[in-house]
Write a protein that binds this DNA or RNA. Sequence first.
DNA 1: GTCTATAAAAGGATAGAC
DNA 2: GTCTATCCTTTTATAGAC
Lengths: 216, 216
Amino acid sequence: MAKATAKPAEPVTTDDRQPPTGKRQAIIDAAARVFLQAGYGAASMDAIAAEAGASKQTVYSHFGAKDALFAAIVEGKCEDLMAPVAMPAVPARDHEKALAELARRFVASMLAPGNMALFRLVIAESARFPELARAFYRAGPLTAVENLAGYLTELADAGTLTTGDPIASARLFFSMLRGDIYIRALLGLDETATAAEMEALVRQAVSAFLAAHAPK
Amino acid sequence: MAKATAKPAEPVTTDDRQPPTGKRQAIIDAAARVFLQAGYGAASMDAIAAEAGASKQTVYSHFGAKDALFAAIVEGKCEDLMAPVAMPAVPARDHEKALAELARRFVASMLAPGNMALFRLVIAESARFPELARAFYRAGPLTAVENLAGYLTELADAGTLTTGDPIASARLFFSMLRGDIYIRALLGLDETATAAEMEALVRQAVSAFLAAHAPK
DNA sequence: GTCTATAAAAGGATAGAC
DNA sequence: GTCTATCCTTTTATAGAC
């Protein structure tokens, strides 16, 4: 055989790393596609194995059971949720622009097909996987609110706007952005929200929010 | 036999009504419970038959197939959605009170366990049953927005408030009411929203809405 | 680690008696 | 109309060879 050479000196420290190369990663990618598209119940392990170009037994070797595979996929996806909802790196002196920029990123992230599919999946399986629902909530809505509340506190201290409760105000801000587009997207009624719709929503929300939190 | 008497004179006009008594209604009630609690995929026809105290064949005699039964249940539930989101019968001169009253009914209806479970179900199955998603949207969110937009138009004509787009304003109003409680309820994180939370949400939303639509 | 083949169970739908 | 009993497909999970 070509690989007949023994390798007794292979470093063990890198051995217990699970390299995301090869079959394992292929299974993860395939499972993500199948679960997000078909849902937990309708996704079969056969379909995932076929999509990954692997055998079913290989899938079971890596993840043990269907629910464990599902949890691994969803937890991984949740980790990618936080990035877009941090405040702009440069919280410009123009707070209206900063809020509008945050709003744009929030709406775009929220309506991104992958994130919307993830949200649907977590909602549908929240009874069976309550821990995943918690993980999603923390990584998405909760993180967004906490970040914005911090920024609002700065603005309030500077007298730029008025808020009795930064957390409640931050929640209101994001609530305004979950408009009719959001409901229709949840229900799968619109495949695409146009850029114009999103921009109109952002302007309406920022404007109303500032009117409701005018200083003095 | 005791019922040997022939009944040739029985009125036929009442004969083709499907009386909701007996097994059929029992099946409908049982299917609603099982579907709303378990979801479409995890609900088995065996479980529905058992819950109804009927045999599986009787269920199939009445509804033909699982998807038809599901559609019948969900469509029936959607019809009950519209009532609470009509404007108050007496649109008082005090528009703030009228809006607050509408908001209270909207939030209570939205968070009612049955309606929330229905919403989750429709979201989860929107890919398989797009017509049901449309029916839900029309009976719920769309009806609410249209009713409120009519009222806002009256208020704008009377100079009580300012709005460039009554539909957009109505959507903003309801969006504000779909706050953090709503997301947590969708994700099944809170079983109960307290009355105090709901009231705080209503006050915040009405206050912000009026500030953003102040006259002149 | 990866594959082929199979076990074991669950669930949707139907047949036929009463 | 309603029931009992059954068919058949799909699906999760495992056994055993390479």
